[in-house]
Amino acid sequence: MERTRVLVLYYSMYGHVEALAQEVAAGAAELEGVDVVIKRVPELIPEERARQIGVKLDQAAPVASVEELEHYDAILVGTPTRFGNMAAQMRNFWDQTGPLWARGALIGKVGSVFTASATQHGGQESTILSVHTTLLHHGMIVVGVPFSCAELTQIDELAGGSPYGAGTITGGDGRRMPSALERRIARFQGRYVAEIARQLKIGRLEAQTA
């Protein structure tokens, strides 16, 4: 059986979304027959300025190319919120996917989104929805996190994450990294999305050989 390919594509200025991306990838990798790749979009801030403001430049994930997106069965997009919207770096990357859209190259692929914000009500859901519109224009199948993920219903601690996708709250100074609970939601999301992509691929292959 042909293996299912999953891309975790993210932008992370200070490492919070990067940490969630690693959990998302770990969840997807738990499934047999799934290959997972973690990549990031290019930084737009000039290097000298980025170093001045503490941008985390030493991230292990290689930089993705727009052209490679069509080679994956599922793409999980991670971006911090910027005033309730996706970060400019992620927006810039997807704005270059016009040729893929023209060919319908991403139609039928699975898409999902996770995010981070400084505060509890800092725009996590609207940020995820801002990415959904782009995925839908590409004809992708948008997947969130169902309430079978028990962590979504907890009220005992401050946490990001919603039915729209995993999330983390960084705090105004950025010192708070994803909690254990937030990491479990991210891992659930990765596994859930990979399972849907795998089942869709199996169904298509069976239909082709029927």
Rank of each mutant, 00 (worst) to 15 (best):
V143M: 12
V143Q: 02
F83P: 02
I53G: 03
R91C: 00
G104N: 08
K39R: 15
A150M: 14
L69D: 03
E151D: 13
V131F: 12
A118I: 04
N85M: 13
V36Y: 01
R103V: 00
V143Y: 01
R40E: 01
K109A: 06
G144H: 06
G122W: 12
V63D: 08
K109D: 04
S126T: 14
L136R: 05
T81P: 12
E48P: 01
I53Y: 13
T97Q: 00
G84L: 04
A88G: 11
R91Q: 13
T97L: 00
A118V: 03
I107P: 00
V34P: 10
V131C: 13
V131P: 09
H138G: 04
E125D: 14
E125S: 10
V55R: 07
A74G: 12
E151P: 12
H138A: 02
S126L: 02
E47V: 15
L57G: 02
S126N: 04
W101Q: 05
D95V: 03
E70T: 06
V142I: 14
I107N: 14
R91N: 12
P80V: 08
D35N: 11
Q124Y: 02
F147W: 14
K39T: 05
G122T: 09
V142M: 13
R82G: 09
A105G: 06
Q124N: 07
Q120K: 13
R51C: 03
G98R: 00
E48A: 14
A60S: 14
V110N: 06
V77K: 09
G98L: 09
I107E: 09
V41L: 14
Q89P: 00
D73T: 11
T119D: 13
L152F: 09
H137L: 09
V77C: 13
G98H: 00
V143R: 02
Q120E: 15
G33F: 11
Q89N: 12
A64H: 04
G111N: 02
G33T: 07
A87Y: 14
G108I: 02
V77G: 09
A118H: 10
S130I: 08
Q52S: 15
G123H: 10
R40Y: 04
T119E: 14
W94T: 05
M140T: 08
S65N: 10
E68F: 03
I141G: 01
N92Q: 03
G54Y: 07
L106D: 00
